[in-house]
């Protein structure tokens, strides 16, 4: 018997270890984002550029940023749960062919450029918020769907077999074993989805949905680089912030899934 007492390595594996420091980077990005949105004039003078101001919208930048955020949040809030549900159903009822159908449809849809999806949404839903919301929700579903299926299928077969053999009901196996173990992969899918949507939402301006795309489009029309940056820098910072903070959640999920 080598019972004995476990070594000290265990302490380092506690989920909370080192988390405080790792949130520093997202926090810095958030501060930069606030600065860019509220005092873009500071960034302009820092870079030594100045918008000619011909096409500058009357809407303040912070309002455009809020519109942008609203678009992304609404479309992700709608798309992510649906994609998650479809992914779970695909794996659960894999024998029915639902899985291959969804994977095939998802792969085809992923080859569409986001601009094309947005353009296709216009005849369906008109102009404004609705078509952009629709297109972003649909487009953002793909990585989540893909990763949900991949994540659930990566759960060790032995763990599922043991769970079944110990008398867990299918919903208990899903909730207590499969989802916790698939979570890191699923969160990675949500991260990809949100980042893609932040970028794709700039195209929404062309559909009349407002957002940070507005100065970009105006800037392109007016050959005004500074105006383009007025939209591009905040949206890039927003995407970086979302990516960094969701990555922290992913790390956390990895730890609780016992894989890190």
């Amino acid at each position: 018997m080598n019972g004995g007492s476990p070594g000290r390595a265990e302490e380092a594996a506690r989920p909370e270890a080192g988390l405080g420091r790792s949130w520093l980077f997202p926090a810095l990005l958030l501060a930069a984002l606030f600065l860019a949105v509220l005092r873009f004039d500071l960034i302009e003078s820092l870079l030594g550029i100045r918008s000619r101001g011909l096409f500058v919208s009357r809407i303040p930048l912070w309002e455009l940023a809020l519109q942008h955020l609203g678009l992304v949040a609404a479309s992700s809030a709608a798309g992510v749960p649906i994609a998650l549900g479809l992914g779970i159903a695909a794996v659960r009822f894999s024998k029915t062919g639902l899985r291959s159908l969804l994977v095939a449809a998802g792969s085809v849809a992923e080859t569409f450029p986001s601009a094309a999806v947005l353009a296709l949404a216009v005849p369906l839903a008109g102009f404004g918020f609705a078509p952009t919301f629709l297109a972003l929700s649909l487009y953002g579903m793909l990585p989540v769907l893909h990763n949900t299926i991949a994540g659930l299928e990566s759960v060790p077969e032995a763990a599922v077999d043991a769970a079944r053999g110990m008398g867990m009901k299918p919903c208990q196996i899903l909730g207590r074993v499969q989802l916790p173990l698939a979570l890191p992969v699923i969160v990675a899918g949500i991260r990809t989805s949100v980042v893609i949507n932040i970028a794709a939402a700039t195209l929404g301006a062309a559909m009349g949905a407002g957002g940070l795309g507005l100065p970009i489009i105006s800037g392109i029309r007016g050959f005004d680089t500074a105006l383009i940056l007025r939209g591009a820098i905040p949206s890039a910072l927003l995407a970086l912030f979302a990516d960094a903070s969701l990555r922290r959640l992913e790390d956390r999920a990895l730890i609780t899934a016992g894989r890190a």
Binding site: A159, D161, A162, L181
Partner: peptide, 8 residues
């Protein structure tokens, strides 16, 4: 394959 749950 034992099948211990790695997240527990």
């Amino acid at each position: 394959s034992v099948g211990l749950f790695p997240h527990m």
